[in-house]
Design a protein around this nucleic acid. Sequence first.
DNA 1: CAGTATCCCAATCGATACTG
DNA 2: CAGTATCGATTGGGATACTG
Lengths: 110, 110
Amino acid sequence: MIHQRECPIETVIHVLGGKWKPTILWNLVESTKRYSDLEKLIPDVSQKMLTQHLRDLEHEGVIQRTVYPTVPPKVEYSLSEYGRTLVPVAEMMCAWGEKHNERKQKEPAS
Amino acid sequence: MIHQRECPIETVIHVLGGKWKPTILWNLVESTKRYSDLEKLIPDVSQKMLTQHLRDLEHEGVIQRTVYPTVPPKVEYSLSEYGRTLVPVAEMMCAWGEKHNERKQKEPAS
DNA sequence: CAGTATCCCAATCGATACTG
DNA sequence: CAGTATCGATTGGGATACTG
């Protein structure tokens, strides 16, 4: 992947743009969650995508991964302080998205 | 494509998430542009993608397409009033994206 | 001028099976 | 419990050629 991002909007889309990334984010806003919690909270996500998205978000510094070296293993995911700076952006996107969805329902023709 | 959008963030990503869509949007914020203007302003976009993205944005109601039935044809694209409601959202995304890009440059390690 | 049409490659995502 | 590995289907995007 080329890491010249002319447009910073693409950066946000890159960070948030994965099928389950927004959902993961919302779930971690409330509180820290274990891997298995996220699996239950997001029933339709495959293990592959959940793991991949968690790794991506971790790499971007948005979430933190904490491993407890116990048997069986315990891994917790939480929003980092930095990740919380993304929340207002996500909320603004969410607000526009909601209005847009309503609008599209009202005018199927145009 | 399934049009159930559980998360409205995905809606925004769907509207703005195409390789050249943000760029197209920025170019239309200033003023109305002709198809050929956009081709010149965005040299790396292929005709296929430019046309496709313009159609997408038009379908979402973000831009307006005006055809002048002259020979040769003249087609103008402009941001709709509705499309302008998306600009503040895009700007907020842009601001976060810029900071994020700076951050990533500063800490290549972690 | 403003597009279409076609072919092809790369990335994304899902399903399934397996493991420290 | 928390993953990894592999395969295959779908989608996004680029290159080229052609048209009302």
